[in-house]
Design a binder for these strands. Structure first.
Lengths: 191, 191
DNA sequence: GTATAGTATATCACTACTGATATAGCGTAC
DNA sequence: GTACGCTATATCAGTAGTGATATACTATAC
């Protein structure tokens, strides 16, 4: 039910589904994403449950906008959710599954290619997150201890992404180095 | 489609759905999980697609077992998949969403409690992974460079889990320390 | 004998998410 | 004027995943 609550959280001011899609990219993209085709029915469901209210508004540049507002119940539900236990689910890494079963192929150079591609991909993501961090530094200064609570929480979640992806990139590098050692000097088969 | 391929990968020898659920826990639990209610229909679908074959076998201790075997097509599909691009999807962290929107509550002690609970949870997971690592060391020695390819790939995926969760635990600790600094000496509001 | 625990397969309803597609108004470039 | 791109809402089919429940056989404990 996380998307439900994220939408409630993003609705600090009235917004349409389309607005919320944008808000996603600007604020929570580093730990969640959602398509419009998922956002629209979710908003409808939240309104049916009384957590949101909506009205149609004329748009200056396109069809009418359905603008949603948080209700009292919605605000309460959001508070209840953030105070509930940390939602730690199963993390799934499809690329680790590929790597794991690649042992069956028995060609370490293919594993090397795979790891190099993975490293590039993760390093790219890391660069994106660091760019967001620089933007925050530019706006609030580089001493997060002095941020407002709002900025502090935002910085903290971003930092987790940077640290965790950073660890993965380092892991890629170490694994690539280990593969290179094996390629130049393969381990003797067990007797 | 990752579960499909993981099942193909686990079927190096014939196995029933029940067996595969166990194999999950023993081999790939640190990067994937699946319930029986998802495994059974997936196996059926894979058989319909010709990637698996099945037969009923009497069981010494319970009802008949439906035992699945990889077909040639199945083996080929598995190879195709591990060689395809690293499947890097959106990572979703519901607990980061909670943390992010907790700024609205405006009570840093609640954030602190939340982070402490999260830290405990992640540290527990980390301890589990380290225990698996120790088991591998006991079985193969503590020099992964000398492992067989099979062991090497297994160690590499496990290592990624350990490094990445380790980074998260460190992040929890740093964030908790930052919160404590704020609680004892709150930042002055912007002028 | 019966309660319970373990092995084993299977289905159901539900939630979650993606990608494709449809519709429609408005503005701009050509 | 028409093609394109942007704003905007909406639905659909398909895939993915969870939790509850049902059935049934075997072995062991009591």
């Amino acid at each position: 039910m996380s998307l439900d609550h994220i939408l409630l959280g993003l609705l600090r001011e009235p917004a349409s589904g389309y607005d919320l899609k944008d808000a996603f990219n600007e604020t929570v993209a580093h730990f969640w994403s959602a398509e419009l085709s998922q956002i629209y029915p979710t908003l409808k469901r939240l309104e049916e449950r009384g957590l949101l209210r909506s009205r149609l508004e004329p748009s200056p540049r396109g069809p009418d906008r359905r603008v949603y507002t948080l209700t009292g119940d919605g605000r309460e539900e959001l508070r209840r959710w953030v105070r509930s236990e940390p939602a730690v689910g199963t993390e799934r890494f499809a690329y680790l599954a590929q790597l794991y079963f690649m042992s069956a192929i028995d060609d370490l150079r293919e594993t090397r290619d795979f790891m190099a591609e993975l490293r590039d991909h993760l390093a790219g993501r890391l660069a994106e997150l660091r760019a967001i961090e620089r933007k925050i530094f530019a706006a609030h200064g580089d001493q997060p201890d002095r941020y407002s609570d709002d900025g502090f929480h935002r910085f903290a979640t971003l930092r987790m992404g940077i640290d965790s992806i950073g660890a993965k990139v380092t892991w890629c590098d170490l694994t690539l180095a280990a593969i290179d050692r094996r390629l130049t000097c393969p381990p003797e088969p067990a007797p």
